[in-house]
Lab assay of single mutants.
Amino acid sequence: MQRVNMIMAESPGLITICLLGYLLSAECTVFLDHENANKILNRPKRYNSGKLEEFVQGNLERECMEEKCSFEEAREVFENTERTTEFWKQYVDGDQCESNPCLNGGSCKDDINSYECWCPFGFEGKNCELDVTCNIKNGRCEQFCKNSADNKVVCSCTEGYRLAENQKSCEPAVPFPCGRVSVSQTSKLTRAETVFPDVDYVNSTEAETILDNITQSTQSFNDFTRVVGGEDAKPGQFPWQVVLNGKVDAFCGGSIVNEKWIVTAAHCVETGVKITVVAGEHNIEETEHTEQKRNVIRIIPHHNYNAAINKYNHDIALLELDEPLVLNSYVTPICIADKEYTNIFLKFGSGYVSGWGRVFHKGRSALVLQYLRVPLVDRATCLRSTKFTIYNNMFCAGFHEGGRDSCQGDSGGPHVTEVEGTSFLTGIISWGEECAMKGKYGIYTKVSRYVNWIKEKTKLT
Rank of each mutant, 00 (worst) to 15 (best):
S11K: 15
L14Q: 03
I15D: 02
T16Y: 11
C18H: 04
A26R: 02
V30R: 15
H34I: 11
N38D: 15
N38K: 14
K39I: 09
R43A: 14
R43L: 09
R46T: 14
Y47I: 12
L52D: 08
E53G: 13
E54I: 12
F55R: 15
E66P: 06
E67R: 04
C69G: 04
E73M: 05
T81K: 15
T84Y: 04
T85P: 15
W88R: 15
W88I: 15
K89F: 05
N104C: 00
C108L: 01
K109Q: 09
F121G: 15
F123H: 06
G125T: 01
G125S: 02
L130R: 08
D131M: 14
T133D: 14
R140E: 06
Q143M: 07
Q143E: 00
C145I: 01
N147R: 06
D150F: 07
S156G: 07
S156R: 07
S156T: 11
C157Q: 00
C157S: 00
E159T: 09
R162G: 05
L163E: 02
A164C: 04
N166G: 04
Q167S: 11
P175G: 07
P177K: 01
R180L: 06
V183S: 11
S184D: 13
L189M: 07
T194D: 12
V195I: 10
D200F: 10
V202G: 11
E208S: 12
T209I: 11
I214H: 07
V227I: 12
V228D: 08
G229K: 12
P235I: 09
P235T: 06
Q241R: 07
Q241I: 11
V242H: 00
W261L: 01
I262G: 02
I262L: 03
A266M: 04
H267W: 02
C268M: 01
C268V: 01
T271F: 08
K274T: 08
I275Q: 03
G280Y: 02
G280E: 01
H282G: 08
N283G: 07
T287G: 10
E288K: 07
H289R: 07
H302D: 02
H303Q: 11
H303G: 07
A317G: 03
L321G: 00
L325F: 11
S329N: 15
Y330I: 03
V331R: 02
P333I: 00
C335A: 00
A337M: 01
D338C: 04
Y341V: 04
S350D: 08
S350P: 12
G355T: 09
W356V: 08
V359S: 14
F360K: 14
K362L: 06
R364M: 10
C382W: 02
L383E: 13
R384V: 07
S385Y: 14
Y391W: 11
M394L: 08
F395C: 02
E401S: 10
S406C: 09
S406I: 11
C407A: 04
D410P: 13
D410K: 14
G413E: 02
E418T: 07
F424A: 02
W431R: 10
E434Q: 12
C435H: 04
C435S: 04
A436R: 14
M437W: 13
G439W: 04
Y444S: 00
V447A: 09
N452C: 04
I454A: 01
E456P: 03
